[in-house]
Nucleic acid binder design. Structure first.
Lengths: 333, 333
DNA sequence: ATGAAAGCGCTAACAA
DNA sequence: TTGTTAGCGCTTTCAT
C-alpha cells in the first residue's frame, strides 16, 4: 500500500542538499542559511512533500500522539471533557488516539498496552474512579499519565478534579436549608469505592452536621439510565424522601419526569439536584439544579499538565482542584 | 524518553533464534516449528516483550490505525456514530485517531494531511455534508476513505447513509395527514448545499404532492442551539405555522419548550418532529417524535466497509443506504 | 524451518 | 552552516 511517495531523500536530491539539511528545515532548526532554507522550502512545496510521522516517531522516539481512555464514547459528560483536551492538544500539535473501555473492565490492561505500544507520548485517563488494573499498568511505566475528572484514592498520580465531596455536601445542605427533611442519594453502584468512600461519606457528613441521622436505606443504586431514574422515583416516594441528589443527568431526568407524571410538585414537595450539568438538565422541565463542574476546563488543564510532564517541565502542583458552582434551576427553591 | 526497553533483538538473543523467527512468532506465521515457537513465546512472556507498533508501522507500511474526522466532539449525534465505529474498529484491532474540525473549516486540509502523515490505514469522515476541501484532499490520495452519515453530492466516495430526503418527506407528509395546514422546516443554514439541494427539496416535494404551494418563508434558519430554537418559535407562531420539522434535537427542544411556555398545545395545535432521535427527544415533555436513524449501525457499517477497502476486498456496494423509521412520541398525533 | 541482511523514512550525533 | 553516518525496532525477501 504505497501511501507515501515523496521522501526526505527526494527533497534532498532535488534541492541539492543533504537529508540532514532538509530535516533541519522541516523541524525549524535555526542552523540553516536563509537561501538554503528557501531553496529547500521551494522544493518541499513543489514536490508537495509531507514528512512521514511514523518514521519520524521511530527515529525521534516521540509520536506527538497522546492516548485518551474513556469509559463511554456516547456520554455528554466525557465528551465535554474530551473537548477541552482536544482544544489544547490541537494547540500543542498532538493527535489523540481515543479508546473506550465500556465493554468490559478486562480490556483495560489490553487498551493501555496497546496505547503504549503505539508509543504515545502520554495518556489521559477519564472515568469516575481509577481502577486497580489501570493504576498498576500506569505505575509500571514511565509514560506520563494524568487523570481527568477521576478520583484516585491514593493521590499518587497527577490529576485534575473538583472537590466532589464538597460538592455533594453542599447540595445536601441546600436541601436542608430549603426545609427538606429527608434527603436521599442516587448513585450508580453503591459498592464501588468512589461511592462508598467519597459520595456516601459526603452525604453522611452533611446529615451529621445538620444533626440528622444517616440511614443506609437512603442510598439508592441505579445503573439503568433514564428508565432506571424513572423507576426509582416510586421507591423514593414510598420511603418519604423529599429531596434527592442524583449523580447522573439522565437518571435525574427520569426522576423529574416520574415526579411530574405522579403530580408531585417540584420544587415545593420534592427537590432534585444532579451532578453533571449537561444540556439535559437545562432542557428538561422543570430544569434541574446541577453541580456545575468546569468540564471543559478539567479537560484543558489536564492536557496542559500532560504537555508539561511530557516536556519534563517542573510541575507546581500535580493534583489540581478546580472550583465548582451550583447552578440553580427550577428543581430547587 | 526511553519508553521501550525490550526489543525483538533481546527476545531473539534470549531465545537463541534470529529476529526473523521472533517476528514470525509474533505475527502468527505458520512456518515455525512448534518447539521453536514455544521457546520464543516463553521468552516473550518472561521478558514482557511488547512489539513497538511504530517500528512495525514503518517496516510494514501499515499502522493499524484509522482516522476519524468529526465536526464536534460534544454532540450526541456524532458520538453515537463513533460508538458504532469504535466497536467494529476494536474487533478488527484498529486504533482510532479522532480529530474535530469544529473551530474552523480552514483546518480541514491540515487535519487530513496530519492524519495521512501519521500513515493511517483509512479515514472515516462524518459531517452533514462533504466539504469541497475534504473532497479534494481525499481524491488526491489512495488512502481509503468512507463517509458516515454524510451526504456526498457527487456520490463518488464510498458512503453509508439513510435516505435523508425520504425521511424529511415522510415527516412533512405525516403533518399533512394529521390535518396540519402549514408545515415549516427549521434548518441550520439554508444556504449550505445539503439543505438547499436535499432538505428543502424534500420539503418542497412533500408540499407539491399534497397540492400545496411552497413558500420560501417557511424555511427557517437557525444556528444557535437550544436558545435559538426557543426564539424561533415566536416567529413560527406569528406566521401561522402549525407543524415543524427541525433538523437538530436541541433546537427542537427549544421549540417545544417555547410552545409549552406560550401555552400552545402539542400536538393538538402544533406538531414537532426532529431529525436526530438522541436521548433529548425522549426525555423532554412532550417527548419529540423523531426520525430514527440507525446511528450506531451507520458507524459500524462504515467501519466494516473501511476494513474491506483497506484489505482490498471486493465491494458489493460502495454506497450503502440503511433504513430509517419514524419514532412516534408525544409531539405528533 | 530458520537466518542474514536490506531496508522503511527519519533524526541526531559527530565531523568537517 | 552543512554533510556523513548510524541507528530507531521491525518486516520481508532471499538464501540455506
Amino acid at each position: 500500500m504505497e501511501k507515501q511517495e515523496i521522501t526526505i531523500y527526494d527533497v534532498a536530491r532535488e534541492a541539492q542538499v543533504s537529508m540532514a539539511t532538509v530535516s533541519r528545515v522541516v523541524n525549524g532548526n535555526k542552523n540553516v542559511r536563509d537561501d538554503t532554507r528557501n531553496k529547500v522550502l521551494e522544493v518541499i512545496k513543489r514536490l508537495n512533500y509531507q514528512p512521514n510521522a511514523v518514521a519520524r516517531g521511530l527515529a525521534s522516539k516521540k509520536s506527538t500522539t497522546i492516548g485518551l481512555i474513556v469509559p463511554e464514547l456516547n456520554n455528554l459528560y466525557f465528551s465535554e471533557l474530551s473537548k477541552g483536551i482536544d482544544d489544547i492538544a490541537t494547540m500543542y500539535k498532538y493527535n489523540i488516539i481515543i479508546t473506550s473501555v465500556d465493554t468490559s473492565v478486562n480490556r483495560e490492561e489490553e487498551v493501555i498496552q496497546g496505547l503504549l505500544s503505539k508509543q504515545v507520548d502520554g495518556v489521559i485517563y477519564m472515568a469516575n474512579e481509577l481502577s486497580e488494573i489501570a493504576r498498576k499498568a500506569f505505575e509500571r511505566n514511565r509514560t506520563p499519565f494524568v487523570l481527568a475528572g477521576t478520583v484516585d484514592h491514593d493521590k499518587t498520580l497527577p490529576s485534575v478534579n473538583i472537590d466532589y465531596q464538597a460538592a455533594i455536601k453542599q447540595g445536601i445542605t441546600s436541601f436542608l436549608a430549603d426545609g427538606k427533611k429527608h434527603p436521599a442519594l442516587v448513585l450508580g453502584r453503591a459498592d464501588v469505592e468512589i461511592n462508598a468512600a467519597h459520595r456516601i461519606k459526603a452525604f453522611k457528613d452533611a446529615l451529621t452536621d445538620a444533626g440528622l441521622a444517616f440511614n443506609d436505606s437512603d442510598i439508592y443504586e441505579n445503573n439503568f439510565g433514564y428508565e432506571g431514574g424513572y423507576q426509582v422515583f416510586e421507591k423514593l416516594q414510598a420511603n418519604g424522601v423529599d429531596s434527592v441528589l442524583v449523580t447522573r443527568d439522565v437518571v435525574a431526568a427520569g426522576v423529574v419526569n416520574a415526579a411530574f407524571d405522579a403530580n408531585v410538585k417540584i420544587p415545593e414537595d420534592f427537590e432534585v439536584i444532579s451532578a453533571s450539568n449537561t444540556i439535559i438538565s437545562k432542557i428538561i422541565r422543570p430544569s434541574i439544579t446541577s453541580i456545575k463542574q468546569p468540564l471543559y476546563d478539567i479537560g484543558a488543564v489536564s492536557m496542559r499538565l500532560l504537555t508539561k510532564m511530557i516536556n519534563r517541565e517542573e510541575l507546581d502542583e500535580a493534583h489540581i482542584v478546580l472550583p465548582f458552582t451550583i447552578e440553580n434551576r427550577q428543581s430547587t427553591k
